[in-house]
């Protein structure tokens, strides 16, 4: 039964990776921007939640509810005032500027919070679990996975059912024509990054309550997010969820063999997919 247990844990872990990846996928889909600071922004949000829970004694879920609009504003401003200037034919400026932001965030957090590992405490929920047959499923991992489902369902509804989503798709397809139709691409991009930061806050809530994190945790979160996006295939949010699940299962299987192999097994799964299907398992975008 331990094999099935490992798979289930892996699938649930995949939900967390899908949450990491959804924001990255959204931003790339709309403006072809890969934000190298994505992982550090997740860690920033986690520290924000930690600050709100420890300083004001708030429940972490309530803290995330307060952190979300703050992160939205951060993302909106970052995109509108900084990243929009870097967008263009050349891929160098956005990469190097977001890389710079990543270094600035890491070291800023180091100065503010020191290098200690932190964790957001959620009391009894932390160890709560429900039994399904002979399996014990942790309540928090289950909530993480359900949140990932909800976030991806919500984002898909937003993209395909609302006026804002139409603007997202139009700008993504043809920025010049979208501009002629009265859409302001600069604002659409800012909205998209702001929205991605709300998803980042949800990811940060589960990151912070599930395991320890410190100011240098960002880059590996970015790598997991990136792997989930590539495994799933560019442009498909459900594909990203599948990518996260594959990554999560590979990691827990690797860890079951030897704890030192957890991360390595995930990377190897990613490289395997890259060789067999370079465009990912469920590609949607043509570019």
């Amino acid at each position: 039964m331990s094999f099935i247990d490992t798979i289930v844990q892996g699938v649930l872990l995949g939900g967390l990776y899908a949450l990491f990846a959804a924001g990255l996928s959204l931003v790339f889909g709309i403006m072809r921007l890969v934000n190298l600071a994505h992982g550090d922004l997740i860690v920033l949000a986690a520290f924000l939640i930690l600050l709100l829970t420890s300083a004001l004694g708030l429940n972490p879920f309530l803290a995330a509810l307060i952190a979300a609009p703050l992160m939205f504003l951060t993302g909106w401003g970052l995109q509108y005032f900084v990243l929009n200037r870097t967008l263009g034919k050349d891929v160098l400026p956005p990469l190097l500027v977001t890389f710079g932001i990543s270094i600035v965030l890491q070291n800023g957090l180091l100065e503010a919070f020191s290098a200690d590992s932190r964790r957001v405490s959620i009391g009894a929920l932390e160890s709560a679990s429900i039994g399904v047959g002979s399996l014990n499923i942790g309540l928090m991992p289950l909530m993480t996975f359900l949140s990932a489902l909800a976030v991806i369902f919500g984002l898909n509804q937003l993209i395909y059912r609302t006026a804002l989503g139409r603007a997202f798709r139009a700008t993504s397809d043809d920025i010049v024509t979208a501009g002629l139709m009265g859409i302001r691409p600069q604002r659409v991009f800012a909205m998209a990054t702001g929205l991605a930061m709300v998803v980042v806050t949800i990811a940060a809530l589960y990151l912070g309550t599930r395991a320890n994190f410190d100011p240098t945790s960002g880059p590996s979160r970015l790598i997991y997010a990136f792997e989930a996006v590539i495994i799933g295939g560019l442009g498909s949010l459900w594909g990203t969820l599948a990518g996260g699940v594959i990554l999560g299962v590979a990691q827990t299987l690797g860890a079951a063999v030897n704890p030192e192999w957890q991360i390595l097994a995930g990377h190897l799964a990613f490289l395997t997919v890259l060789v067999i299907k370079p465009r990912g398992l469920f590609p949607r975008a043509v570019d």
């Binding site: 921007l33 890969v34 190298l36 891929v91 956005p94 990469l95 880059p219 590996s220 970015l222 790598i223 990136f226 792997e227 590539i230 991360i263 390595l264 990377h267 190897l268 990613f270 490289l271 890259l274 060789v275 370079p278």
Partner: peptide, 25 residues
Amino acid sequence: FFTFRLQGPYFAIGTWVVAEVVRLL
């Protein structure tokens, strides 16, 4: 062989993943 399958920004992170793999090995 691995990283050249990725374009532009994805190449960048791909090289990072490869570096992590070699480090872990």
